[in-house]
Structures are given as structure tokens and as C-alpha cells.
Amino acid sequence: MNRKPRRSFRQRLSEVLESLPFLAPLLVFLVILYGMLGWTLYVSMANWVGTAPNYEFAGLKWYQMMFRLDRFRVDMNNNVKWLAIGVLPTVALALFLAYMLEIGSVKRIEGYVRTLILYPVAMSFVVTGTIWSWMYQPDKGVLNTILRAVGLSELAGRYTTNPATATYWLILIFVWQYLGFAVIILQSSFRTTELQEMVEAAIVDGASKLRILFSVIVPNIRGGILILVSLLLISALKVFDIVYVVTFGGPGYSTDVLALFMFIATFQQHLVALGAGLGMIIFLMALVIVIPYTIYAFRKWFE
């Protein structure tokens, strides 16, 4: 067991002291974060209803209530939709666009497209959500007005006012907003010297463009894709503003998500304990996402 020679106390002390300036800030914030997480867990098992804090222990009462609510079931469904449909198409679309800009474009077009799809990144969902709610309005909204003007009125849809499909239209806003960001990340990871050389070689070998994409590029930008997927997953799980601004969870609560319900339960319904419980469910979902990512990142990091 004792492979390393035992270090003296002084050596250890000086090592700790040396690492302290690096670790201290990060540790402080982690302690605050996990402390508050524990606090939330406790609140979720307390009897806090109304504005005044109440830490009287109530066990799993609020969780039992939560699992009975139909709204919670709808929320879980919608959150899964967000995670799946918000992330995968964005990555696929971004991959296609980034590749297209790399192989097939004129320099000026590339700059133009990048600026074009990047500007939403600088905007908040409070703004883009408002605009998209106008795009979607079925009677006088932008999209249907255009469709009718070009004689395609049968394509005019109900968008976010149809409970069955409303969430998908909300997710589309998310894809729209994050596409530019995704393209930038992927495009940058294309541009390593090794990869460029490999692509050149493949071209010389006469490989088709699609083959180059899937056999040469994708396997070599796994890191970039991983970072992109994880950033998108975080954003999709956190989604709150789009729903808050565009539908406020409606029609009824058909587009509600956990993050919005947490907000409504805590601040509108004054059921703070229930809100804390919903917060813990969001945390558990984050854990489920985080496990595969962390394993992968952990291996790469400490290889």
C-alpha cells in the first residue's frame, strides 16, 4: 500500500498552504451551494406554508402531495421533451451548419451567417419570448399572416394555443436561440491542425462529404460535442423564462415545466415546502444527466 515515501508533516502543511489560494474561493462557493441544497432539502420536509418561515418537520408529506398532482406528471413529461428535443436537433442542425460553413462557403457568407444566427445569444428570453409569442399568434401573428399572404393558409397553425403541441413550439424558440452558439462551438473544434490534415487526407482519398463528416470529423470532435451537449442540457433543464413569457404554462398547465411550477408553488401559491420539493426533483433530474457526463469527463480529466 505504501508506494509513496511518507511525507513529513511540514511537507504536507506547506503543500496545503500552497494549494489554499487556488482552492479557497472555489471551496467557499461549493460550501455555500451544497449548504443551501441541504437547506432546500430540509425545507421540502418542513411545513412551510405562507410567507413566514416554518421549519416544523413534516416528513414526506409534500412529496406525497406532489406525486398526486396531475400537474407534476405533465411537468415531468414536458421536462423530458425539453431535454430530448431541445438538445439533439440543435446539435444535429449545428453540426450540419458548421460543416456546411467549413466546406462549402464563400468567406463573406460565413461571417454573415455567423453574425446572423449569433445575435439571439446576446438577447434574453424575456425579449425573444415576447417576439415569438407574436410570431405564433394564430389569428394575427406574423407566421400565419405570412402563410395566408402567400396562399398557404391551410398550413396556418394554432401553435402555442394547442395544448397537444404547444411545448414543441416553445422548444423551437430554444433551438432558434441557441443555434448560433452551438455552431460557434462546433466550428471552433473543427479547426485543429490535426483534424484539418485528416480531412485533407480524406479528400485526397476521394471520400464523400458525408463520409468525411461522419467518419473523420464527428469522432474527432467528441470533446466539443460533449461540451455543447452538456451546456444545452443545462439550459434545457433550467428552462423557465421562455415558458414564463410565452405561455405562462398554458393552455391550462399543458406547457408547464418543473422550474416554472417551483416558482408558482413558492411565490404564487405560497407553498414554500412544495416549491422546495420541486427544487429537489429538479436536482435529481440534474443528477441523472450529470452522471454519464461526469463519468466521461472524470475519465478524460484524470486519465
Binding site: 405564433y136 399568434q137 394564430p138 394554432r158 402555442t160 394555443t161 405561455t247
Partner: peptide
């Protein structure tokens, strides 16, 4: 009732 009430 106005059919697209959910958005207004």
C-alpha cells in the same frame, strides 16, 4: 369564445 385565448 375567441378560439386562441391561451395566448392573450
Amino acid at each position: 369564445i375567441y378560439p386562441y385565448h391561451a395566448g392573450l
